[in-house]
Each structure stands twice: as C-alpha cells, then as structure tokens.
Design a protein around this nucleic acid. Sequence first.
RNA 1: GCCGGAGUGGCGGAAUUGGCAGACGCGCACGACUCAAAAUCGUGUUCCCAACGGGAAUGAGGGUUCAAUUCCCUCCUUCGGCACCA
Length: 856
Amino acid sequence: MPVPSEEKAKAITPVPVKEIPASEERPRQDKSYNPGSIEKKWQDKWEADQLYRSVIDHSKQKYYALTMLPYPSGDLHIGHWYAMTPSDARARYMRMKGYNVLFPMGFDAFGLPAENAAIKDGIHPMKRTFQNIARMRTQMRSMGAMFDWEREAVSADPAYYKWTEWFFIQLYKAGLAYRKMSAVDWCPNCNTTLAREQVWGDDRHCERCGTPVIKKDLDQWFFKSTKYADELLNFDGIDWPQTVKTLQTNWIDRSEGAEVQFSVVSDQSPVISVFTTRPDTLWGATFMVFSPEHPLVEKITTPENKQAVEDYKAQAARQTEIQRGAMDKEKTGVFTGAYAINPVNQERIPIWIADYVMMSYGTGAIMAVPAHDERDFAFAKKYDLPIIPVIQPEGQSEADGTTMEAAFIGSGVMVNSGMLNGTKVNTEKGRKNPSIAAVLDWLGEKGIGRESVNYRYRDWLISRQRYWGAPIPMVKCEIHGWNPVPDDQLPVLLPEDVEWRPTGESPLKLHPTWKHTTCPVCGGAAIRETDTMDTFMCSSWYHLRYLSPKYDLGPFDPAEYDYWMPVDTYTGGIEHATMHLLYTRFFHKALRDAGIVKGNEPMTQLRNQGMVLGEDGDKMSKSKGNVIAPDILVNKYGADSVRAYIMFFARWEMGAPWDSQGIEGAVRWVKRVWTLFTDSPTDSVTDSRMGTDEVRKNLRRKVHQTLRKVTRDFENFEFNTIISSLMELMNEMYKAREAGAAGSDEWKEALEIYVKMMAPVTPHIAEELWAYLGKPYSVHTQLWPAVDEAATKEDSIELPVQINGKVRDRIVVPAEATEDEIKSAALASAGVIKFLEGKEVRKVIVAKGRLVSIVI
RNA sequence: GCCGGAGUGGCGGAAUUGGCAGACGCGCACGACUCAAAAUCGUGUUCCCAACGGGAAUGAGGGUUCAAUUCCCUCCUUCGGCACCA
C-alpha cells in the first residue's frame, strides 16, 4: 500500500536540533534517495547558517587549506572538480579533527582569453569575466564545498589589483624591478611577450596557445628573481613532492665553476670573461668561441673577416627565429681574425663565432677545450683547430691530440698544465673535484679568475602588451625618468573605453588620453607605462588577499596574516611547478626581505593532483569532443555521487581517463548507504542460531578498523582507498544487519561513525542521514571519531602455510598464539602433512600475524 | 642525450616493514524478481591444464632471500621536464 507522498516527505524531514531519544520508534522509511532535493536543502541551510565561515579563533589550532584558484573560463570543468573535491574533503576532515580551517576560493580573473574573445565579439573583458565568475560560483556551490565565500578574492577587481600594483612598487623600491632592452620571447598569436617559463617544448611554443614564439628586441620590465636562485633551491622545512622540487631544481639549474678573464689582442685589448665548469682544463683551451650576437664581435673582427662574420651573424639571426636546430646538427662557425691570450699559459688563441654558443647563458662566450668537450672537439675537427689533451688516465702514456677520436671526459690526472701537472681529476663537479679545487685556488692567487656560479634560471619578465591585466604603475617623465605612481593614486585603473585592435601593442597605448599623466616628481607632463603585468603576478599573492579581501589599509590585514599564514596545505596541478609555484616562492621571499611578510616559505605542504583525461585517454578538449561536463553529472546523479566517484576512480596524484560507466559504482554505493540507513529493519528477526555476540564484536571490529584506515588515508591524501574502505564496511554492515545486529548498540555506533566518515566525502547525504539518526545539526561540526584500538584486535587469525614458497594450507590460530604454538599447528595441518611426507623439514619461519613458511 | 614518474586481470585500481597478488569498483556471465525490460538483489569472474588437484603470472631478463609488485643489476615501453648550458 503506497504511502501518501506528503506523509513520506514528513517521514524523512530531519529534526535538526532536538535529538530523538534512541528508544523512540521511527516510522519505516522507504522513500528513495533524491539527491536533488537533499543537496539543495542543505546547501541553502549551510549558507544561511554561515556554517563554513572561518574566523580567527585563538583557542583553536588554525589550518589554512588552499586549492589553486581557477581562471574564470565560464564553465566549471570536471578537472576543477577533480582538483577541488578531494581538497575540500580533506579540509572538512581537518575541521572535524578540531582545527579551525580556512578553505577559501577566488578567481584568477585577468588574462588573455577574455581579451581575445573581446576582439572577436566586442564584449568587454570585464563584463564577460564577471559574468563567467557569477556562473562558476553557482556551479561551485553545487559541489557542496566548504568554501568560505566571505573571503572570495577576484584578481581583476580594482580593490585587488590596487595591491598587485602596490606590490610591484614595493619590489621596485627594493631594487628588484628593472627595465631592460633585450631579445624577449614573443608569441605572435597572443601578441605579447612571454616569460621564459611560458615557452614550452622543442619548438619553443607558447604555453597558452601553442604558437611557436619568436624573438623581439623590446624594452621590458623584469623582476630580479635570480637574486633568490640559491634560496629557491633550498626546500628545507617544506613538505613538497620530490617531483616538484626536482623540476624547480632543474629549472634553476645551478652550475658551479669559474669565471676566467681572457684579454683580446687588439688596440684596446678588451677583456672578455668566460664561464666554465671545467677550469681544470684551462691549459687545453686552444681557441675561443663567441656567440654570434655577442656585442664585442663587431669590435674585434678584423677587416678581412668582416664580410664572413656579418654573413654568419645574419644567418644565425634568421635561424634563431626558427630554432637553432637540433643538438646533433653539424657545428658551424667563422673566424673573426682576432686572437685572445690564454691567461694560464699566455698562448695566443683564435677567436671564432659559432651558433652553438648562446648569448643567453653564461657570458655568451666560451673557452674551447676540444680535448675534453665533445662540442669543442667536433668544432676543432671540422675547422682543423689544435687539440691539446690536459687530462689523461693515470699511468697512461701521453695522449696525442692529433690522433684523438673523441673528447676525453673521464677521470685521471692533469698534464700539460704547468705546476698543476699530476693533480688528480675525478668526475665530480665543483670543488669536490680535486683538480677543480686546485685550479680555483690557483686562479684566485694569480688574479686571473674567480670561483663562480651560473644559473639557467632567468629574471622574470613581467610586461605584457595586453589590456586585460593589472597596469604596471609606473610613469615616465622626460626629465626624471621612470617613477612609481604615488600610493595615494593607486590603483591605476584600466580605462573601460578601449579598442581591441590586435596590433602587438598594448591597447592602453592606443587609448587617446589614458596614458597622459603628470610626473610624480616635477608635476610636468609624463606618460604612463601602457603594458600590463603577467597574470602570474596576480596569483603570486592571492593566498594573502583571501585573508581579508575587503581590507583597505594594505594588501591584507596583519592580524589575519599572523593567525592564518603560512598555508598549511596547498593543492593543485603539477603543471605549475616552474611557473606559479616558483613565482610565488620568489614573491614571498622578496616580500619577506621588504618586511611585508614573515617566514621563508608561503606554503608548508604541497600536494599535486593528476589530470582527468577524456574517455578516449586523450586530454579533454572541446575540439576533440571528449569533455565531461560536471553539471550534467550532478543533475543525473547528485553532487555526492560525483564527489565520491572523483575520489574513488583514480589515484589522486596520478589521474586517469574518465569512465562514464564506472561512476555507476559510486552512485550505487551512495544509494546503498541510503538504503542501509533508511530501510533500517529494527524490527527484523533476530537470528537465534548465530552467536549475536560474535556478530556484534565483528561489526565493531570492522568499524574501528575502517575508521583507522580512513583516518590514515585522509592524512596521506589516499582518497580512492577511503571510498573502497567505506564500501567494504557497508557490505559488512549489510551482513551484520542480515545477521540480526540492527538493534544493538554496536549497530548504532556503526551508523554514527559511518556518517561521520562519509561527511567529508559526501557532505549532503551525510547531513541528511545525521538528521535522520536524530542527531543534532550539523554533522560537519562533529569531531572526528576516535579509533578504539582494542576493538580492532582479532581473536583468531588465519595464517597461510607455505612450503618452499607455495601456499599449501591455512591454519586458524588464536591471535595471541606463541610462535611455537603456531609452528606446531602449521606442521600438524593436513595440507602440510601431505606435502611433508618423507621429506625433511629444514627450517620453519613464523612471520607473526602474516604467515608460516616451511623450507624442505 | 640527461633528470624524474609510471608499467599489476577485459578496465580503473588495491596490497603497513619484503610475508596469502588482484581489496574495492566497473564490465561481463549466470540466477532471483518481472508478462518483459530497466532498476534492485544474489552467485561467479587473472590465465592455463576437461576436472580432482595442480601449474603459471605484477613490462622483459637476471640477482639477493625461506619469501620480491616491494630491494639490487641490465634492458624495454610510456608519460612529463630539460637539452649545443660551456
């Protein structure tokens, strides 16, 4: 007989505040699970109650959980869910552990896509961006995350970018921002410059749009991030994944060596520095090679070589634009006609130019030691330059440069090197190599060179020739040069009436009036900087703006800073290893030195999630049509099921292709939990055959074992096994209920702990079931249950018995059985006796609680 | 070339310290319910030998060990990063 729908609704309406006495009989509940209404109901209530508002509470330990903020593309992608849901679950877990948790969200709202779209359809980037944000906010609410929306920060909001500008000025004042004319990477599609980090791959393409970049000589703003290179290599005190640390270390690529001065034989005798990691091979330097772009080349080239050098330079310049080609490309170069003096032995050595020497690394010039460097060897062979071995394996007769077939890079002793002959050479780098140490000391004494460190890491190029970014708050006066905009004139606001002509120049430059201003020094006419900042500047400090997004006296409220910082756990994709994650560390250190923030690192713990791929195993993209839309899934299954599946279907840090069928498993789990609770057969037949004591004990054991496992997995970010463990426990609970345990205290405890364990994963259904159990609102303010270790202990254990490594039988022994007891039980078991017949037992190994291994 | 990650059933994945390989789930098969289907529930599901019983198996090959997905060596595949870096 169907129950009238109104009564059904009444039956499940939770009683939020008043606890129903356990004895009171609840009406039988058979309404099916309806995520749509449950989720809406609780989301509204949580919001109305400000359940996730985090405020400073000095009586509690704080926990700042941060997940990377999205760009407001307009639609929340399944990738966002994949990044945010487990982070949310863990933040919720930490909250239940008793921490005062801050879990904010915001938008990285400046950037190219909105501007490119504006060029196409004329919709203002501001309008589009804030529309997109509104839409994504709604989508994020459907996720049921515990974001504290009172702390939301949007980088394109003038109240935000005022401080982005202010930070630029602070770095400028600290001497960390400078302007430089140089050949910078330019994306012809995005019509802007790019930082070195934003140029990817063999073909050096734009990280954003994939277009191969070109070089352009431009006057641009840089941050002196290289000043912090050494400190950025130090990861002491932070718990970051080894992969990220390795990527950053390789990116910075510190190399130790020496800078050595060579003088050029000419009228002015200019001195040229070279960087080498092998100063111990100095005596073998038989020529020098300059990069074709080296400024000195023009000066030193002799008239008779002029034409050849000019031709080569022109050719190299053309090639730079395409690419200087593969490593195995044949070496080319031309002689400049000039000579330098090798300072260690006064030998006159020729100076060549070749495109295998890069202007951007070291000093743009090298000493060439063909005997001990493969590239120099190849070059010397091709152009018939002298090869003088200065290191050879110990005890070997002297090598002959003319007959060498390859550069020698092994260990040995120094030869042909004057007073340092006989010094041992190994393959270590820097001072760990005795030969290098000896030469460094010798160079220092003689004043020819000095110990030096070189990095591949470059200063951060900040300028972007685009409109939709934070203006660079600098003004140029004919008389007083560049000066920062005074603080009381911040923010420099973006004008709204701009034209979107893609010209390669900032639209701000084309605005008729915006750039005209007055000089902060003399009050005379001056011009604003019309470039805007790289958006990585905005995201380098958003974790600080979250602390007090409405604060007006500074970028953040110091009281909030002191309580919440540093970020305890930061989660996000690994693709930012050498970009955002490196910038934000640099930024923090620079601000620390400016006295604005404290501590050496902004984020104590970092964890990376992997990527959700399309069902075809490819990266999701609109063009491939393999994009999974979370909204559709939420409508179909409910947010809780989507959350559960996202946490279940892959190892979080690995990611995996999406599987539309696989989600059914998570959906079934959620439904079966619902049924387990709401279809509670408190009136079911008690099983008289079974020892109910045992059933209850087993139930309680499983509950606490699961709790222990789930707790550990939350700590370790192992989200997929949290769900498996909960599934397993649910299966056990069904069996226990079948066995008649559903009226017991153990059963009630199981239900309660189960809801609490679910709460971080599936917050809505957990809240609903919590209310259904008659518990006081809210499950999300409950404390995480404690494991009863005694309850997890097994009475008896089953041990496999191996004979020569193969399982032959299983024995059941009391948990506290001694080794001897286990041994004799194993030897007495039927399956073992059969195999032992006529054989001699050589050894019996008892691995307590694991197995018995018999060797015959 | 260098640096790092990964390789386990049809699929996603699990496996405290070296201790029963394949938890949990998807899929599939069979059964129950149904007029039927869906949903739901139950049972089974690494492979091979017909079975009883065995045997093989965690990318390949070797090693250490009573015992290896786990430790060591060589190699292969794949993903990511860097790359004429002096």
